[in-house]
Nucleic acid binder design. Structure first.
Lengths: 116, 116
DNA sequence: AGAGAAGTACGATCGTCGTCAAACTTCGAT
DNA sequence: ATCGAAGTTTGACGACGATCGTACTTCTCT
């Protein structure tokens, strides 16, 4: 049996209607995960897992990306062996207007210990 | 020695400049505490600890109020034996614009399991 | 003064979460 | 075909936090 879902396929993503505030907040409360979101927001481009500036091991990083994806904050897809990450800006805004904006404010940015 | 700070005095409150995004988010991620904030926001009035609709014991409630106060979200003062709680709306808005608004949106409100 | 109401402090428990290392899989390039 | 790069899975560990009961304090009211 396959413990890995095929790399050519995309992992499961929640619909906007399935987004939960509790889950989204739990995802955003972790500094590493918030840094990932901030970096995605700042770049405006999709970023592969390995290209983020985060101070954790690969396995921990995988965990964080899973949490973000399951909460609906990011979309993931494969390009070769690389896992790309997209910020689901519009969809998160639709579910919880102003939330991401509040976390990417200059004030919020300044309060971020990790790189943004 | 006094283990209790006198009831006639107010407990320590952080200045706006001391507010930390991490601390604020950690305070708001708990459903009980978010419910407290939501109830304060909805009423527009100060509310005493005992008058909140929260499903926890008194000692746990005390803990939650401490967390909220130390994060800067509420201001506390005594009236007799009652501990009053004020939402520090303007100050939180100054520190992190849009954050509280995003959590009191209709969408966010609808996503709240606990009473608002 | 005494009783009760409103919270607080303390200690203990229990679950969850972030973290890592090691073994594994999958893909691309040589 | 093989090797390395990129992630994933699993299991374990440690820390932190939400919760409660009990004992305590402080105030108000009678």
């Amino acid at each position: 049996m396959s413990y890995y879902w095929p790399m050519g396929r995309t992992p499961p993503h929640p619909e906007v209607s399935q987004f939960g505030l509790q889950q989204v907040l739990e995802a955003l409360v972790d500094p590493v995960r918030r840094s990932i979101v901030t970096q995605l927001d700042a770049s405006g481009e999709d970023i592969k897992c390995g290209d983020f500036d985060i101070p954790v091991s690969k396995s921990t990083a995988t965990h964080h990306f899973n949490v973000l994806r399951e909460a609906g904050l990011i979309r993931q897809y494969y390009v070769g062996t690389a896992r790309m990450n997209t910020l689901r800006r519009d969809e998160v805004d639709e579910a919880f207007p102003g939330l991401l904006a509040a976390l990417t404010t200059p004030q919020a940015r300044a309060a971020q210990p990790l790189a943004g």
